[in-house]
Write a protein that binds this DNA or RNA. Structure first.
Lengths: 129, 129
DNA sequence: CACCCTATGTGCATGATGTCAATAAAGACG
DNA sequence: CGTCTTTATTGACATCATGCACATAGGGTG
């Protein structure tokens, strides 16, 4: 098998691999930020609920996306120095970010329907044999 | 908005954008090849049934994937010089390719379930407000 | 021949993502 | 104080998927 092939259904550490969807971390982080998670490091563990196995996402990826989203205006940040340990950059979702997340949801619905259509086409073709 | 952002739900020519799923063309081509389409150029129009608007997929992408899949052993090809015009490279799916497609289907099912889970998390959080 | 259409292919640029290293601050401990 | 560990953040580089521009070639048509 040529290098770089994803071995669908088998590889990728056995997880269902939400990373098959491009930029999926973006809406995940937005949704978590609307909840109670607020800073980069805390988001790492919270991602588990969306199918990301622990250790599969590097922290640097989280921070990079957060900075990009702040530049885009989807989130804003302030420093929090009240707790013990290193200061945390705390993120909140802007109104624009909420709209962006809503657009993501509508797009994901469409993507899901496309997948369903493809699976139906497969089972139909297989059943006709 | 920074360049390169996908504007989910709005951009991308208004189509539902199946390309949100990485390498989605691969299973599409395999499924079409199990049907009646046989050569690269003919696959271009046949892709329409999977949500690819005409003109959204460049022909070079099709040929590149076909050659990669042949190297991987998922398809095999022969030249067809019987018709008029330039010779066609005609592809057929190998048994390994059929297995690979089946793995793709199982992976797509999992991906769809992840999307559903994410959408449910969103609507739950929105409903609680 | 000039031109167009079909058909296949190559090369390069860009964007998304993964990996690894570096920086920095605060507290614990000798 | 010096340094070790934990938490938090950033930067630099490599790889992969994809899009775009262009090259090649056969055959029909004026």
């Amino acid at each position: 098998m040529p290098r770089g092939h994803w071995e669908p259904g088998g590889g990728f550490g056995g997880s269902a691999c939400p990373r098959r969807i491009a930029r999926f971390l973006e809406p995940c982080l937005l949704l978590l930020l609307r909840g109670d998670a607020t800073h980069g490091y805390g988001l790492l563990e919270a991602l588990r609920q969306f199918g990301f196995a622990p250790g599969t996402v590097d922290a640097s990826v989280i921070y990079r996306i957060l900075r990009e989203m702040e530049q885009a205006g989807w989130v804003s940040s302030q420093w929090d120095t009240t707790g013990s340990g290193a200061p945390r950059r705390v993120y909140t979702v802007t109104p624009d970010g909420a709209e962006y997340l809503a657009a993501w949801i509508s797009d994901l619905r469409a993507t899901r329907d496309e997948i369903d259509q493809f699976i139906r086409a497969y089972t139909t073709q297989s059943g006709e044999r």
